[in-house]
């Protein structure tokens, strides 16, 4: 079966530094896959390569078998590869309603529409409301994003990516910085993501990784160190060694 997302010999060098070292990685369809690694292992670079923010030095990236290595970021999104950001990248002056509406209109190709008043398309509004309910944002739809509690902002971050109707969703530390009280809500919505979306979770938080992922890849010094099921990785002494000195539950 064609994997949802695949990289072949992906490499990125910054001057003398190899940030991503010959990574060949497969994300299967419908997978719940986690990518872990100590700080500075190159997780962020890897995501930036996948989403097209920076070009690779060499290697290829395939989305459902199609080569997207040279595609610009927005086209990758339109092809079904969406991401969330580790630090909120939202539109602080907009409401969640506008933010989600933006993503949905864009996907439906009406982002070019400059004549119709935003909100006059019932289909789009329906969909926005649906997404808002799924991500428990329905009660704050009309608030300014910058006024939302942090947990809600993180939810919106995921909801926006979801609104792009991705087939592959990259979650970059979705729970980072969320206070304990709002954490449960976030984890529940992540767990409830539909199965036809393949998810790659980049995470530091081992509790979240072990509760969510079915497979785990470990990235060390830019290269793929090992890969396996949750149990295999949990039992792997080398992985523990890599994390030694790094606090595991940080």
């Amino acid at each position: 079966m064609t994997p949802a997302l695949e990289t072949i010999g992906l490499q990125k060098r910054f001057g003398g530094l190899t940030a991503t070292d010959n990574v060949s990685f497969r994300l299967e369809k419908g997978a719940r896959h986690a990518l872990i690694g100590p700080n500075g292992a190159g997780k962020t670079t890897f995501i930036n390569l996948l989403t097209g923010v920076i070009p690779p030095t060499s290697g290829r990236i395939l989305l459902e078998g199609a080569d997207i290595t040279r595609l610009c970021p927005e086209l990758r999104v339109q092809r079904g590869l969406a991401r969330t950001f580790q630090i909120n990248q939202l539109f602080p002056a907009m409401t969640p309603l506008e933010t989600l509406g933006l993503a949905v209109s864009e996907r439906k190709g009406s982002g070019r529409d400059w004549w119709r008043v935003f909100g006059s398309d019932r289909e789009i509004v329906d969909e926005v409301v649906g997404i808002a309910q799924r991500f428990r944002l329905a009660d704050v739809l009309d608030e300014r994003t910058s006024n939302l509690p942090y947990g809600k902002q993180r939810l919106l971050e995921i909801a926006v990516a979801f609104a792009c109707e991705p087939r592959v969703l990259l979650l970059d530390e979705p729970a980072a910085g969320v206070p304990e009280a709002e954490r449960h809500e976030l984890l529940a919505t992540v767990a409830a993501l539909p199965r036809d979306v393949s998810v790659l979770l980049i995470e530091h938080d081992m509790d979240l990784v072990f509760s969510f992922a079915e497979r785990i890849s470990v990235l060390v010094n830019g290269g793929l160190f090992t890969e396996g099921t949750v149990d295999e990785i949990a039992a792997d002494p080398r992985v523990r060694a890599v994390y030694l000195g790094e606090s595991v539950d940080e």
């Binding site: 989403t51 923010v53 610009c72 970021p73 927005e74 086209l75 999104v77 339109q78 969406a82 991401r83 950001f85 990248q89 939202l90 539109f91 602080p92 002056a93 907009m94 506008e98 933010t99 509406g101 933006l102 993503a103 209109s105 864009e106 996907r107 009406s110 982002g111 070019r112 529409d113 400059w114 004549w115 119709r116 008043v117 935003f118 926006v160 990516a161 609104a163 792009c164």
Partner: peptide
Amino acid sequence: RIVHSPFGLSLRSIRDNSLRARAVGIPV
């Protein structure tokens, strides 16, 4: 009309955060 349309909204999103706008699939 332009600024109240989806097109206008996408402009505001670019102004506020063009990185995110790209990540929503907007051809900035």
